[in-house]
Amino acid sequence: MDIRENIANTNDAVISIRGLCKAFGSNKVLDDFNMNLQKGQSKVVLGRSGSGKSVLIKCIIGLLTPEAGAINVFGQNVLNISQEELDEIRVKIGFLFQSNALYDSMTVRENLEFPMRRHSIRLSEKEANERVVEALKNVGLEHTIDMMPSELSGGMKKRIALARTLILKPDIILYDEPTTGLDPITGREITTLIKEIQHKYQTSSIIISHDMKCVKNTADSIALLLNGKCYTEGTYSELAMSDDPNVKQFFE
C-alpha cells in the first residue's frame, strides 16, 4: 500500500513500537521497549541521561538499526523496507537534532532547500522560495535567509533547525532534547514555538527531554524510559502525583 494511503487510513497509532531491543556491545540500551504514538498526540519520552531516549528516535528514523523488534510507522515496519521506501517515510517525519545539525558550508536558505532538493520534491523555483520564507516566518527569522549558521546565536540556530524540519510539512516530528543547552528564556521560547507548530500543522510528536518545564508545556502523554523498557505512561499530572520513587524523582 502507498504511504499516502496509509497516512489517510491511519486513525489511531501513527507509530507503534513493539519489543524493541538495541545494545551497544554488552550495554543493553533498549530491552523489549513498547510504545504507541497516536495521531495528533504529543508524547514526551522521559528518562535519565544515557538511558536510550535519543537511540529510540534514531531507530524510528532509521539512523540506527535495532537487534530485534518492530517499528511500524503509518503501518509499515521501517526495519523491513527498502531504502526507497524508507526515504518516502522520512519525507513524512521531521527530525530536530539536539545539536541542530545545520550545514556549516551552506546559507540558511540552502539549509532549508536541501531536504526539498534531496527528496526530489517537485516544486517550481517560486514555490520552493515561498516554502522557505513560510518556514522562516513560522520561527520569526525571515531576515536570516542569506546568513551563514556561524552568524547565528544558539537560539536562532535551534529555530532555523526547526524551520528546516518543517519545510517538508511532516506529519510526525521527532524532537531530540529541543531545549538542551539554551538559556531558560530561549528554552521557553522554543517550547512555545513547538506548541504553536503542533497546533498549526496538527503534527504528532515524540519529544525527548528532561527539561520539566518543556515536558509540562508540550506533553499530552509522558512515557518513562527506565532500564531499556517503557516503565510507565501517563499525563503530566498523573505522573506528578505518583508515589513510585522511580517516577517521583523526575518531578521533585
Partner: peptide, 17 residues
C-alpha cells in the same frame, strides 16, 4: 569529522541523501 560529531551527516541521511 566536524560534520559527524555535530550530526550533520545524520541530518543528510534523514534528508534522503
Amino acid at each position: 569529522g566536524s560534520m559527524r560529531v555535530t550530526e550533520q551527516i545524520d541530518a543528510m541521511e534523514v534528508s534522503g541523501t
